[in-house]
Write a protein that binds this DNA or RNA. Sequence first.
DNA 1: CCTTACTGCGTATCTCATACGCTAAATAGC
DNA 2: GCTATTTAGCGTATGAGATACGCAGTAAGG
Lengths: 253, 253
Amino acid sequence: MDNDELPADVALMWRLREPSRRGPKPSLSLDDIVAAAIALADAEGLAAVSMARVAERLGNSTMALYRHVKSKDELFVMMSDAALERPDPMPEGIDWRTGLTFWADGVLTAIRRHPWYSKLPISGPPAGPNNLAWFDSALGVLKDTGLPEEAKVGVVMGLITYVQGEVRMAFDLAAGYQDNPDAFRKFGATLRRVADPRVYPAVVRTVEAGVFDEVGTFEEDSEADFDFGLQLYLDGVAAFIDRVGGPRPQPSP
Amino acid sequence: MDNDELPADVALMWRLREPSRRGPKPSLSLDDIVAAAIALADAEGLAAVSMARVAERLGNSTMALYRHVKSKDELFVMMSDAALERPDPMPEGIDWRTGLTFWADGVLTAIRRHPWYSKLPISGPPAGPNNLAWFDSALGVLKDTGLPEEAKVGVVMGLITYVQGEVRMAFDLAAGYQDNPDAFRKFGATLRRVADPRVYPAVVRTVEAGVFDEVGTFEEDSEADFDFGLQLYLDGVAAFIDRVGGPRPQPSP
DNA sequence: CCTTACTGCGTATCTCATACGCTAAATAGC
DNA sequence: GCTATTTAGCGTATGAGATACGCAGTAAGG
């Protein structure tokens, strides 16, 4: 009665199954499988990750994988924890606002290494060791804010939502751009052809102002957008802390 | 040289192909196909939408669909425009902030009718008639803010990103909850079993405070969270308008 | 009437996930 | 050591799914 009762995925992510004593030595490990799947996703996208392709990379048969993961979905869950790796350690004594900015940039960097990450569904609370480390890192930086624990969780969850949303949009658009750059480059022309000013007056006004005629360079823009939105969110958090957080050190009169 | 040069999907979304003169009368229309696919997705989720199942619903063969859409992906693009329907007309004379709140609530309501919407990739700028109508509606409400057109677009894109991110997270979690409620209910217990205080000090502190021991009821929470984040974003927009927007009417001294 | 463009559809191919059961390896208990 | 038990890898089979290809019948244009 130790690691029983844990959801199977969680036990697997934490590698809690005691190694088997009998039977042949495994020639394959869960880590190998997950690493191969991640490498494949990095190289060819999440759609290229099939059990067969992963096995091929490992020089094993397809069905051998099923001795280590119950299903492809379970493999995805493992990938989603493994891909994030560990956060860089939070600098000592950093204030919460700088800390959360540091944290968000870290998430962004981590996901950029594995863009498919944002296509995986978030199936639950952050239960894997790496996800939990990120969660811990963000919670820790709020330690001295005086917020009740529950509010800290709310703040961090909101931040996660913001970051994930921003990342997903950026990567979806980037993928769409690669598939079909013309849809972006010709967007202004398209609207001119298609948008009736009586039905879409505001759009047409914008088009006439030439806003969509410049080539989109979201690679550069998106970083700035991300920071803009983030600082906005942190402004809100600051107001929240002032309202709800306990007394904080003030310069004595 | 009229609707040439338009991306194929866009032309299709706007129904710009002139009806064929010769040959048998089509027994199937694009609208039927898209409607059937949407009904199927509503009933059984996006994963249940296969060309075969859609055709079955229409009493046609699978391959008949390919006379109307080039691929399943194209069908998805059609679905993503059709599912949003049209926004409710923006009330006359509404101020921008109330207007954007109204707009965001409208998006939320529209997506709630078709939860799978947020699983579809955003492949490009809003080019379909319905998407464009939403875009126009949000842009229109910013008319009197004095913002340059380009800034209006930025504000609206940011809002779209926020809403989409929030919605996706909420629906992913809701789906995860349905699949496996225990992962949520036992989350506190799981962490107690698995989280070492030396590695995850902040998480353990939160767990000890009992934050994760209450049954999650995000159905109720998520509405409030959504509004909270939205108002935060709008606060930021207000500051932006004050800074960048042109002069606005002031009570004369 | 016949050519032509077009619709619906049957068939075939290829890729996938995954169930089932066999074989062989390694250990535990004798 | 010997044997029973447990387990890893894998071959095969099944069923779903996307989609290429080509045929057959249909309706408008000439």
